[in-house]
């Protein structure tokens, strides 16, 4: 817009800089600086508590690579992400289709389904510690089926699936809202025309309209789901702290422990966080290329 400025443009741009200044001061101090600093730290043996700081090059990265624990954590995270994201996306879409009605009852019941979205992950985790505990609801439900009661979170086989279940339970409503928004943005004349064309059964509506029209919502939900899942921390920390026997060990626990429990390993922690960053980027870019193929 060369040459075209509002009268009083200096007043305007000065106001603008004043208005964005707080944001950029905060972003600079608490986002950009830490991000850069994090890379710097990852190249050092960095122990701020004992004032022992020296350059180690890429050794931190090498030790993360060499760590079987980190590898295990990444594999766990990938398994977790695959299961949780696919299930919750499916469930969210299903719930949205169910609740996308103008019944009074749908408004009321919907409000209950959103409850996990406002509950803190710690509180939810605690409720689910009970759910999976020996005296908990899960055993109560399974008892008639003749399944012996046990504390599911103490089992190396079932602890991780239990956490998956909790997260599917609590994040599905969240993504359901996005699908609801998507469904409501389909103009009703389109569905009326479809009805006239004989698209009446719920399945054909889903197959030929809702699903293809909400492809982008689906990909959005999937990407957000992946980013959230790979960074899983709160629930694992509260419910199992990575155990039993590393069955629920995930990268964020690895990173957290190295920063928090072993101050001498902060550099390693930073290096691991960068590797996690790379993994997230790779997945995001892969998704992006996938999206590029699609016309929407």
């Amino acid at each position: 817009m060369a040459g075209v400025r509002d009268a009083g443009s200096r007043l305007e741009s000065r106001t603008a800089y004043l208005l964005i200044a707080p944001l950029f001061i905060l972003l600079g101090s608490f986002v950009f600086f830490p991000a850069a600093f994090s890379f710097y730290v990852s190249l050092f043996h960095y122990d701020p508590f004992n004032h022992s700081i020296y350059y180690v090059g890429f050794n931190n990265y090498l030790s993360v690579f060499d760590s079987p624990l980190f590898r295990l954590a990444v594999i766990n995270a990938l398994i977790y992400t695959t299961v949780v994201v696919s299930t919750q996306t499916f469930l969210a879409f299903g719930l949205a289709l169910l609740f996308n009605r103008r019944f009074l009852i749908s408004k009321v019941t919907r409000a209950f389904v959103f409850l996990p979205a406002i509950t803190s992950s710690v509180a939810l985790s605690i409720i689910f510690i009970w759910f999976f505990s020996k005296q908990g609801l899960l055993n109560y439900i399974l008892a008639p089926l003749g399944i012996a009661s046990q504390n599911w979170l103490f089992s190396t086989t079932y602890a991780f699936p239990s956490i998956m279940m909790l997260n599917i339970f609590s994040t599905s409503p969240y993504f359901m809202i996005m699908y609801l928004a998507g469904l409501q943005s389909i103009p009703s004349p389109i569905m009326e025309a479809a009805a006239i064309d004989g698209v009446i059964s719920p399945w054909s509506k889903f197959r030929y309209f809702y699903f293809p029209m909400l492809t982008f919502t689906t990909l959005f939900v999937v990407i957000l789901g992946i980013i959230g899942s790979i960074q899983l921390f709160d629930q694992v920390f509260v419910m199992t702290d990575g155990g039993p026997a590393y069955a629920t060990y995930v990268p964020m626990i690895y990173i957290f422990n190295r920063a928090y429990l072993y101050p001498g390993l902060i550099g390693v922690s930073a290096a691991a966080s960068f590797l996690l960053f790379v993994i997230i980027m790779v997945i995001t870019i892969a998704q992006r290329n996938f999206l590029k193929e699609m016309k929407w």
Partner: peptide
């Protein structure tokens, strides 16, 4: 630049913020 901050995952910021 502002939107770009959405690309930076939280763990990357977390450790350095803590050290800072």
């Amino acid at each position: 630049v502002v939107l770009g901050t959405l690309m930076i995952p939280f763990p990357v910021i977390l450790i350095a913020s803590y050290v800072f």
